[in-house]
Amino acid sequence: MTRYALVPAAGSGSRMGGEKPKQYLPLLGRPLIHHTLASLCAVPAIAKIFVVLAADDADWARHDWSLLAGRLEVLRCGGATRAESVTNGLRAMAAMAVAADDWVLVHDAARACLAPAQVEALIRTVGDDPVGGILAVPVADTLKRAGADQRVQATVPRDGLWQAQTPQMFRHRQLLQALECCPDVTDEAGAIEALGLAPRLVAADATNFKVTYPADLRLAEWILRSRQLSSAEQS
């Protein structure tokens, strides 16, 4: 079975508060999504990375993708929601000879600090699993449920709770069927769970976070710079 990555990148990133979609915001001299895609391209086990863009996306062509040439396939079939973009991308992949049992690793465009080692751990752990699995982090903080007045209504036990991340890795046909049956989910695992299946949890770490607010860009820059310095020292 071949492994592919699918990166939905058709959103506007409205919570960042700017005019430019957050996947194109500058991060260390390149658009944020470039770092995301470079991490996926650094995993030899992934045959190709499909990038789902909005049909009217004009920003992609303004950037240089030559360093990732040969690994990327752009699909201009983005939808109104993440789930719709992933579903459209899966359908387009099927038309490009992606097989029903091939693995698809769906990854958020805004998780720019993904480490290739995390992807390799997911592939190694989930590769023989009958369902599939996701990167996630056990919840460490105390959780509070708020009432309508924004006061604490209850403390939620955190035992057994995990914070879902991406990539989320499932077989092409099963994931497409799950999303077609359950289009309102917020992640791929939710659609698989709605079929009565239980995805595997693979421990990652907090550096694989999603850039959502302006301050997150500074944190992502710090993480990526630290990795660059560490790599330079080791070489």
Rank of each mutant, 00 (worst) to 15 (best):
E180Y: 08
G18H: 06
L195T: 11
P31Q: 06
R76W: 13
A94V: 11
E233F: 15
A38E: 13
E73L: 08
D149E: 09
R82E: 10
K210T: 15
A121W: 00
A154D: 14
T125W: 01
L201E: 08
V74T: 08
R91N: 09
M169I: 01
L229K: 12
V86C: 01
R62E: 07
R173C: 08
E84Y: 06
G70V: 07
R76C: 14
E188G: 09
A94F: 05
M16Q: 10
D64A: 04
R200T: 00
R218H: 11
G160W: 10
L122Q: 00
D59Y: 11
T125N: 02
L114T: 03
R82P: 08
Q228N: 06
L27G: 03
P116M: 09
S235N: 12
M96F: 12
R151D: 06
S14R: 15
A55Y: 10
L40G: 01
H172F: 05
Q165N: 11
S235R: 14
A9P: 02
L25A: 10
V51A: 01
P157T: 02
P167H: 10
A92K: 05
W103L: 01
L90Y: 01
G13Q: 05
A92Y: 06
W162M: 07
T81I: 02
C77W: 05
G160K: 12
D159E: 15
A220D: 03
L161F: 06
A10L: 05
E233G: 10
L197A: 09
I33F: 01
G190V: 05
L90K: 00
A191V: 06
C113F: 04
D184E: 14
S235K: 12
A54W: 12
P199N: 00
S39I: 04
G147D: 06
F50Y: 15
P116I: 04
L105M: 10
V139E: 12
A110P: 04
T2Y: 06
V86R: 00
G89D: 02
D159P: 11
V139P: 07
R71D: 07
L67M: 10
T186Q: 12
A109I: 11
D128G: 14
G89W: 03
P214D: 12
L229I: 08
L67I: 06
I123T: 01
G89K: 03
C182R: 14
L176P: 10
N208W: 02
Q177I: 12
L201W: 15
A69K: 13
D149W: 08
Q23M: 10
Q168R: 10
M16V: 14
C77G: 04
R82A: 11
F50S: 03
L72G: 02
L229H: 12
S12L: 15
A69S: 13
D57M: 05
G17Q: 04
L229R: 13
Q118I: 02
R3A: 15
A140G: 11
D149I: 04
T212A: 14
L32I: 10
R82K: 14
P157F: 04
L32Q: 03
V126G: 00
A5K: 00
R91C: 14
T155Y: 11
A94C: 06
R218N: 07
C181H: 15
V74C: 07
D57H: 04
A189M: 12
G190P: 00
Y4E: 03
S12G: 13
A100W: 13
